[in-house]
Design a protein around this nucleic acid. Structure first.
Lengths: 113, 113
DNA sequence: CTTTCACATGAACAATTGTTCATGTATTAT
DNA sequence: ATAATACATGAACAATTGTTCATGTGAAAG
């Protein structure tokens, strides 16, 4: 028989038919997606799909103020969605890993179908 | 400095150009992810991974009020992330398509790695 | 027809969030 | 040391958002 249970979490089996979703996981999931849920931040992630860029370049590409971009870069940094390296006065940001790429790709795919 | 808008556009490619991201696409992307960016809504989507459920079941599983769940189901419905069917007094909700499944899966994967 | 059940929805309030403005920090140049 | 450049950050304000409370709607039962 095919079991139709999600293989995502394995907690102590409560009731047969229905398990309440894990609070912490759900909260973290929502928190993760909330990062993508802002125009400025998706734009930043989007332009970083092509490789690292410094703050100045990013704010030019987005037509956003340097301050706004910096604030959002901090959010992305804290969420470990981007990494950065310093070179003199300039700070270069890049996508932290390929999950970001995949998630954005999924979103675009969903919208363009 | 004075970057001009490119006349050629191939915005849906896997590696988009290092140019100003398309406003509308970015807005829609953010809007899509914002739906996933709330605990109540991800929980709803999560329990629907197992198949369709009625509103009462959902609010029991989430330990949330029926009103709150109904409000969020409306948001999910408007975003075309869930579909529904009526059976007497009961309304059953289900995931609209597999994109939802995939996106949540990506999120969980990102968190558990 | 009236009641009850399952769900939907409007209003209002609190909480969260993103931007701007001003200022702070770090690095390089003069 | 002083200035200039590139970026970060705190405070405050407006806007958005999610919940609760109360009420409304549609369907089946009595």
């Amino acid at each position: 028989m095919m079991a139709k249970k999600p293989s995502l979490s394995a907690e102590a089996a409560p009731s047969p038919a229905a398990q309440t979703p894990d609070e912490d996981l759900m909260y973290d999931l929502a928190e993760l997606f909330r990062i993508f849920g802002d125009s400025t931040r998706v734009k930043i992630l989007y332009v970083l799909l092509n490789g690292e860029k410094c703050v100045g370049e990013i704010s030019e590409l987005l037509t956003a103020t340097q301050s706004a971009v910096s604030h959002q870069l901090r959010v992305l940094k804290q969420a470990k969605l981007v990494k950065y390296r310093r070179e003199g006065k300039t700070v270069y940001y890049a996508l932290a890993d390929d999950h970001v790429r995949t998630i954005i790709g999924m979103g675009v795919e969903h919208l363009t179908e």
